[in-house]
Design a protein around this nucleic acid. Structure first.
Lengths: 232, 232
DNA sequence: CGGGCCCCTTGACCGCGGTCAAGCGCGGGC
DNA sequence: GCCCGCGCTTGACCGCGGTCAAGGGGCCCG
């Protein structure tokens, strides 16, 4: 792990707030795992004996039903951690995890982590903050699915991705559209249609390059009342 | 707080796993708060300085959009705790909480809790377990909204409420149908229709009394493939 | 450079569930 | 006992988004 990787590790809410030596002892001497696209890290129901830090690439967390349908509940990228909280729920992962692009991860052993918590209470607070962060993200996802239309959910996603709150922005879709669609709770076809409907609001798409004329206008659209496009 | 209340407190995942004196010091000498239906405990964005244990009655957690629509993200009953994790997320509640029936709660101070965590690491592990439990519940809720039909969501709710996994069961709807509908991500009218569609599967409803001929059959229906009622 | 593959888009169709409105039944008040 | 109100149900309608299918454009490989 080089200095750049270490910087990423220390940028996470979980490992950034604890002391240098605690972070070092947890991930410092762990090997970096390199996976290629399509690799399954773990499946729901398996014993949860580790959590992960993403150094590069993307990982999706999802649930599968008995008949094979899947619901993506999160996509994690560089500088994010996942499955930290799973290790405290009867030792089972409640979701499955798959690498969706070639990726570099650090795997942190759970047994070791639990021990550290017992003598490093500050680590416990960091873990709780991290769990709270994931909790908030899930609550917002539920809110969005329940009361935003497909175009509004797409707009919300774009606004969140924009580096600015107003004016123009050019952004790149972080992962392929089929995955993005699932993440937003819709089918790829609906994502296409949703992007088409955002065109009159100053959104143009070419491959994975998206340019937005006015981010504030998009944000307004997300908050516009009842799931419809109220005239324009 | 009498012995019965204390038993409820000790039945929660959060306060049941820690030592007697830690639990006692957190909630033992707290007064019991009695609220009547409609009272707002806190609103999203407020400083999160406490979490709650439900001794009786029901409390809903929900998010409101700028235009006034609301999405219920959870309903908590006797023996459950909520908002534990919020106190670690920048000190803000990500949701609002309202008492939906007359209720008896214990309010646990957050400042005190954080102090205890620093010198009682076992408490930290309990809190993480509790947070994980809520996390799993949210993930399942997302899964259900995304890939179950309205009748399936209602069936799943009934199965979960049943004391048995097979055979007959008679259960009572825990809260009024408008709230239940929102909790399940639908409108009251859709809940009515969904219950009507479950009638051929052995579900009969009279007021809030629900009787189920065969719980296993209902469970089967929930897992039956593609959101439809596959003939029969 | 041509062909095939894959991903994305666009169209046609339709079923689920939201909306609006009417009807019904239980319960409280005068 | 009568009336009114409220919560629930039922019906009619329709728009959103899923499904199925065809078309188009980039990219790799032969």
């Amino acid at each position: 792990m080089d200095a750049s990787d270490w910087r990423i590790v220390r940028s996470t809410p979980l490992l950034g707030a604890v002391s240098q030596d605690v972070a070092q002892s947890l991930v410092g001497n762990q090997p970096i795992s390199v996976y290629q696209k399509g690799h399954t890290l773990f499946q729901q129901g398996e014993a949860a004996d580790a959590f992960f830090v993403v150094l590069g690439g993307w990982v999706k967390l999802y649930r599968v039903t008995p008949d094979g349908n899947e619901a993506v509940v999160g996509v994690y990228r560089r500088g994010e951690t996942f499955a930290e909280a799973a290790m405290f729920l009867g030792g089972r992962y409640p979701v499955s995890a798959e690498v969706v692009t070639d990726a570099r991860l650090v795997r942190v052993d759970g047994q070791r982590l639990r021990q550290r918590i017992l003598d490093q209470p500050e680590l416990a607070l960091s873990m709780l903050a991290s769990a709270s962060y994931h909790l908030k993200a899930l609550v917002e996802q539920i809110e969005h699915i329940k009361l935003l239309s497909a175009p509004q959910r797409v707009a919300e996603f774009l606004v969140r991705l924009s580096p600015v709150r107003e004016g123009g922005a050019a952004i790149e879709l972080p992962y392929e559209k089929a995955l993005l669609a699932n993440r937003l709770g819709m089918k790829p076809e609906s994502l296409s249609r949703a992007l088409a409907k955002l065109r009159p609001l100053g959104v143009s798409v070419d491959r994975e390059q998206v340019s937005i004329v006015d981010v504030a206008l998009l944000a307004k659209f997300v908050e516009s009342s009842d799931r419809g496009e109220e005239g324009f």
